[in-house]
Write a protein that binds this DNA or RNA. Structure first.
Lengths: 113, 113
DNA sequence: CGATCATATGCCTATATCGGCATGCGTCAA
DNA sequence: TTGACGCATGCCGATATAGGCATATGATCG
């Protein structure tokens, strides 16, 4: 078997970096496909395909605007992801007592993005 | 090209439901492979493979304990995911429920970034 | 109507899985 | 040492995916 269809799972939909980029861009407001494609340096068909996946999992919505089709963000689907990861928050905040000292050291040096 | 390697991206690693299940189970503490496999109803090789992916993206750590190999959670890698989705929080709190043209027009106030 | 712009799709290739099964390898016990 | 146990891997098959290119579909305008 291959991987589960990205089409039915938000986790899968956002597993693709370019789709995350699209979502991030859409925070600024609705945009037509060509606009997104150009801004992200991808071909139009490529952008359309990513947008289709995002639409199918409900992360974006589209509406016609003359010749164009404006895509807008609908971030509600990201909430479950945020909550799921949030369920691990105490594990990255607390001390890792169950793990060995090596990890403790890593935590000291730790400074992510 | 195929999908990006799950091995290099936490987003991809957690795109697989069974891997999320494994992570969830590990919140209770370290566990040997067979234990996890049995609890999640998957074969041992399957569990090992998922654990390998999780290990390669740094979400779990392992240590030998006699014949067994205990896997433990290292949730720090989930933090970026939590933060990324958190960047959309205000969007799912806003009233996107009735996303008709009227609302769209209102939102265009801040459309340009 | 015909031309043109904006998107969506279909077809095709290469690749990266996920899963199963059998097996290799290290560890511990007798 | 031999055997049993625990786990990792290799190999194979089926499938989904990302992208590219060409093209179908839609809408607007002259």
């Amino acid at each position: 078997m291959a991987r589960a269809a990205t089409t039915s799972d938000v986790f899968n939909a956002i597993a693709e970096p370019q789709r995350r980029d699209i979502l991030a861009l859409l925070r600024a407001g609705e945009r037509p496909v060509t606009d997104l494609a150009q801004e992200l340096g991808m071909s139009q068909p490529r952008a359309s395909k990513h947008l289709r996946v995002l639409r199918e999992v409900g992360l974006v919505r589209d509406r016609k605007a003359g010749k164009q089709r404006l895509y807008g963000l609908d971030a509600r689907g990201l909430r479950p992801v945020h909550e799921w990861t949030g369920g691990f928050e105490r594990f990255w905040n607390e001390s890792f007592d169950r793990l060995d000292t090596y990890v403790q050291d890593l935590k000291q040096t730790w400074q992510e993005d």
